[in-house]
Design a protein around this nucleic acid. Structure first.
Lengths: 301, 301
DNA sequence: CACACTTACGATATTCGTAAGGATT
DNA sequence: AATCCTTACGAATATCGTAAGTGTG
């Protein structure tokens, strides 16, 4: 029994005429005859009574009609679903992202993606960096947006841009006018740090440790937005990845290049394996690579 | 997309190996490769990641697995169902029969049928002769067991045997010793008739009308079993189709050939159209033709 | 006799298996 | 080097369409 045969049978059952069914099927009468004959032989009995002048269904044929209808309908649905999924006319995609990326670079990228593929559903998990890695590893998401991990293991990391930490100071501070700052200078002020566990916090600690410096966390909080507000309120200074520059400036803080040491790290896309991504995931990855450019310092007002 | 391709895909998805899948499918590796390739092309994307050393599913492939499983399972079920129906390993059959046939000739025929085709479900509607014809015409049943109707219309009637009415008299009656009876003699006694509407009653009335005789219904009842009991109790005499002989004798009445006029009529199978019967219906028709012989008078004890 | 399905047959397409090729462990 | 999938190619099979055949209304 083949799909073609079932379709042929249904067409004949509907029209009760081989000739008419032929047109629907784009097939010649003899070919249709053979198809029906083949179906009947494969099932072991007659489905249609063909007296040269009329076509009718046998009871067995009659019982096959609803079954065949169902079968063909589900067949077509499945075929169409997969086809849509491949052409991104339909689909679901789950990504995980660290908070700093989620609130800065991701939204515009998603906007572009949405414009290109309006039917694809996207779920964004904004969790801390380590959890992103876990979610990719557990295959809960196809893509993860993270700082490059130390050990990728079975995962693969594709960098999007190199992120460099910048100082965040109150607009009223004298530091805000400097063209650049070094860590020693920055740390003469009260420092507002993210609480552990946080990748940003860890990157800072690791970088300073190499230079014999200690992070003096006068204030600690969870959210970058809070850091920005605290700085702009004059409570102290901080240092954040450059991908947060826009957010910090919107919150009223000023970002200044930070050196000695320069703390930098790749930000990119983490996947289980690049080769077995869904079409939707590949498309989003492409959009990310296209839309994201290294965040830099815009001229201060 | 074809059934073969889906089966091939499922086999590879299960084993995650083309080589192993080949054995299950009885196919060579290259043929399998081409089948998968064809499926992927027809759907417009890759379902499997083949690195020379390992085979894995793409997310789209993964999403296809449960759909394909369902599809193939239903496909096989449908195919098997029809095949069983054709080989009478399964099936349903509805027949209608007039009461006299139901309680006399049908049971042994059904026994044989059941023995040959134990999996076929048979529904027997035992209703009056006219209703049998209606049920066949309405296609509620495939076969009807009736006296030959006056007008078959679009139905076709195939006779099984020619039935001749016999007299039914009490065992103690002097009439019981006669080798045969005529109607005039029989009607000197009280007559026990079936109530209208009844084919048996109608046949009698029609036959006697032609001879200027009138049916003197002293007693009337619905069931043939009651007629038998009433006769054997000495309440009177009756006349029944020969297919009821055994039943009457079991009830203690005596059957005697009846003449002048001889009332006879074909009993047979009524169908909508012989050519579009189910395999099961044809089989039962065949069993009926084989097992049923014209009921006659066995030697009295 | 005209219409509708079936059979016959040659052409085309598809599918299959064998053999060679390529890549990874 | 061994294993596993892919590509190449010739052969077998299946399917299709044209043309002739057959039976019914």
């Amino acid at each position: 029994m083949t799909v073609k045969q079932l379709r042929a049978f249904l067409a004949v059952a509907r029209t009760l005429s081989f000739t008419q069914a032929c047109e629907h099927l784009h097939l010649s009468q003899p070919a249709l005859s053979l198809a029906i004959k083949g179906l009947e032989e494969s099932l072991g009995g007659r489905l249609l009574i063909r007296s040269t002048r009329s076509v009718r269904l046998t009871p067995e044929g009659e019982s096959l009609v609803p079954l065949a209808k169902r079968l063909i309908a589900e067949w077509d649905n499945t075929e169409e679903l997969l086809r849509q999924r491949f052409t991104l006319q339909l689909g679901r995609l789950a990504v995980a992202t660290m908070p700093s990326f989620a609130s800065n670079l991701l939204p515009p990228a998603l906007r572009v993606f949405r414009q290109r593929h309006p039917k694809v559903n996207v779920t964004v998990h904004d969790v801390i960096n380590e959890q992103v890695i876990e979610m990719v590893r557990a295959r809960q998401v196809e893509l993860g947006l993270v700082f490059e991990p130390e050990a990728t293991g079975s995962l693969s990391f594709a960098p999007l841009f190199r992120d460099r930490f910048v100082a965040v100071v109150p607009a009223e501070s004298r530091l805000a006018e400097r063209p650049s700052l070094d860590w020693a200078t920055l740390m003469t002020r009260d420092f507002i740090a993210l609480q552990r566990p946080s990748m940003v916090r860890r990157l800072l600690e690791q970088a300073l440790e190499g230079r014999g410096l200690v992070l003096p966390a006068t204030f600690e909080c969870h959210q970058l937005a809070t850091v920005g507000r605290m700085v702009s309120s004059g409570l102290g200074v901080s240092a954040v990845p450059s991908l947060c520059i826009d957010q910090m400036q919107e919150l009223g803080a000023v970002c200044v290049p930070l050196e000695d040491p320069v703390v930098e790290r790749d930000v990119g896309v983490l996947t289980w394996n690049r080769h077995e991504l869904s079409v939707a995931a590949v498309a989003l990855h492409r959009v990310l690579a296209e839309t994201i450019q290294t965040p830099g310092l815009s001229p201060r007002c």
